[in-house]
Design a protein around this nucleic acid. Structure first.
Lengths: 142, 142
DNA sequence: ATTTTTGCAAACCTTTTGCATGGAA
DNA sequence: TTCCATGCAAAAGGTTTGCAAAAAT
């Protein structure tokens, strides 16, 4: 679980100004226990009368993704979503029922990436691993 | 490399009608040695006066993705692209310079997915692995 | 005082949809 | 002759942008 203050600090440390909208977004993002879209944040901002607008949300998510505070997620549906994440967790398991995500430390993909590099002749620079399934809570309900 | 006739057969086998636009798209897709977007195909269709329109392209790509003839790819940029693929290859290495893709057989992700399932308590149903880097040809040029 | 950030609204781009026409089986 | 597929054009989403005003340093 990521704390709002960590997100605020990330802005600060990177030399961005600490503004009202950014603080508000930090709180909103930290409150999400699941993946979320820009539109989700916009809805929350309106419901809670925070006055953070669409453009600011996109711009902030962009910055936060650069800083590694949130990670872009491509859901199987093709939707673009985000998750707040600890920098130590490089991959995410996504519950296809409730949307909850759990970060996992790199579990040995490096080795596989290296093997694929050797096999294909590519110089592998980056990889993306996303896992989808049912979280413990949703398993019980079925 | 995927042959146009394989794509045509895939339509046929699955019970879809063999139409002019679908044959034309099969040729266009087979000619791509790299990932491509719906818009790429539309451009090609116009340049070559094939008369295949946007809606048909999206509808066909949808079908072909279902049939496993093409695979949806989410590029690091967030763009949605496609690659033609052999059904046996479950993952793709994407060259970030020229866009070429190479399919690779599943190299042991199953085991990792199982380990992550055990660790997190999720029941893992699906995973996506995409690798990005420089292909052999592009490596030489740098 | 200076520079960044924001809001607003419009623009943009990609993808989807409804419906009448045309074509495959 | 029956259904499926296509073209067209419009709609629907999602994301970006220009610019003037507001806020942070």
């Amino acid at each position: 679980m990521v704390d709002a203050s960590e997100i605020v600090s990330a802005f600060e440390t990177a030399g961005y100004r600490l503004t009202g909208p950014r603080r508000a977004l930090a709180v909103l993002i930290a409150a999400q226990g699941r993946h979320f879209t820009a539109d989700d944040l916009l809805g929350e901002s309106r419901r809670r009368r925070l006055g953070v607008t669409r453009a600011t949300i996109f711009r902030s998510l962009d910055v936060l993704a650069d800083l590694g505070v949130v990670e872009r997620l491509d859901l199987p549906s093709g939707e673009h979503a985000f998750v707040a994440c600890e920098p130590a967790h490089h991959h995410h398991v996504v519950c296809s029922s409730c949307g909850r995500t759990t970060g996992v430390a790199d579990p040995g993909i490096e080795r596989i990436a290296a093997a694929i590099g050797r096999e294909t002749g590519y110089r592998i620079d980056a990889h993306r691993l996303e896992l989808f399934g049912l979280c413990p809570a949703c398993r019980k309900q079925n």
